Computed example of a mutant assay.
Amino acid sequence: MNAQSAKHGAAAGNITPDRPDWTIDQGWDNYTADEHAVWETLFERQTKLLPGRACDEFVQGMQALPIGADHIPDFRRLSDVLIKQTGWQVVAVPGLVPDEVFFDHLAHRRFPAGQFIRKRDQLDYLEEPDVFHDVFGHVPMLMNPMIADYIQAYGIGGLRAQKLGVLPNLARVYWYTVEFGLVTQAEGLRIYGSGIVSSYTETVFALDDASPNRIRFDLERVMRTNYRIDDFQETYFFLHNLDELLELGRIDFAPLYERARRQPDLEPGEILPDDEVIARGTGRYHSARHPAK
């Protein structure tokens, strides 16, 4: 989706924020019947696919929140439940927001969610996160205290990383955990990353396809690893349990940034000799889609 006219909100370049924090009113009463129907389509097909694929914490969070198939959730009702459980709230934004605004929201336990919903011809791919990605994908995990603390720590760390000029390294950590992370549970490998759990096609690809690598998460390694923003990931990193995210929130990243500066970046599909690999991918999907020039 490259056409300017196909973009939404801030990404379309037609939004001038009225508030310094870029928040807007969700305008829940303004959603059309067709927009609620798009939510229903997305919700029903994803909830049919996720049993046995999503992690236990996602399932528990979804069950505890006022999220259903019949309509786009009201951020006020979501926040009422979240605040009591983990101190978080959901705030509406017009789309992607500047980094410093995003980090400040997270640092203060406010999750900025796009309030628009994709069109019917964009069910499987949308360049900019919409209300389905942000609410269905992210909010259930915010009910979990470990994830809630980790994402707040990420917001605080993001503000520091900006000042140090190392934001790309930290962004990779967020990408490969919060957005595209896997975790091992008693029944096997499960999804906790919102970018996967809100995507019908990537849910299947991340767990079932032979093409991607599935590698044990290592912080320094992930800081050096580029990622794909235009397609499925070539590598997914897994945790043994979500408790590991709390440890990341306690680490002093400064020396890690320094070491990362002195080493080359890694390509998304690259495997290192000391990687703990649970599945070495064939790379077939990306070789066909993105042939070497």
Rank of each mutant, 00 (worst) to 15 (best):
F180I: 14
A161M: 03
P140A: 04
Y176P: 08
Q152V: 03
K119H: 15
G165W: 01
K119A: 14
F132A: 01
W175K: 06
F136W: 06
F136A: 02
I156N: 05
V183P: 12
L170K: 14
Q162G: 11
M146W: 10
Y174W: 10
E187Y: 14
I151L: 09
E187S: 15
L182F: 14
I156G: 02
G165I: 09
Y150H: 10
M146V: 15
L123K: 05
P140S: 02
R160V: 13
T177E: 01
E127P: 12
L182Y: 13
Y154Q: 08
Q162F: 04
V173Q: 01
V183R: 10
L142M: 09
Y150D: 00
D134Q: 02
L142S: 03
R120H: 15
K119E: 07
R118V: 14
F132I: 08
Q152L: 05
R172N: 09
L164V: 11
M141T: 07
L164K: 11
I156S: 07
A186T: 15
H133L: 00
V139K: 02
I117P: 08
E127L: 14
V183A: 11
I151M: 02
Q152P: 05
Q152S: 02
N144W: 07
P129S: 09
L167E: 02
V166D: 04
V135L: 06
E128W: 10
L164S: 09
L159P: 06
V173T: 08
G137W: 00
R172M: 09
I151P: 03
N169H: 15
N169V: 13
V131S: 11
Y176K: 03
D149S: 10
R172H: 11
F180L: 12
G165M: 00
D124T: 13
V166E: 00
H133W: 05
V173H: 06
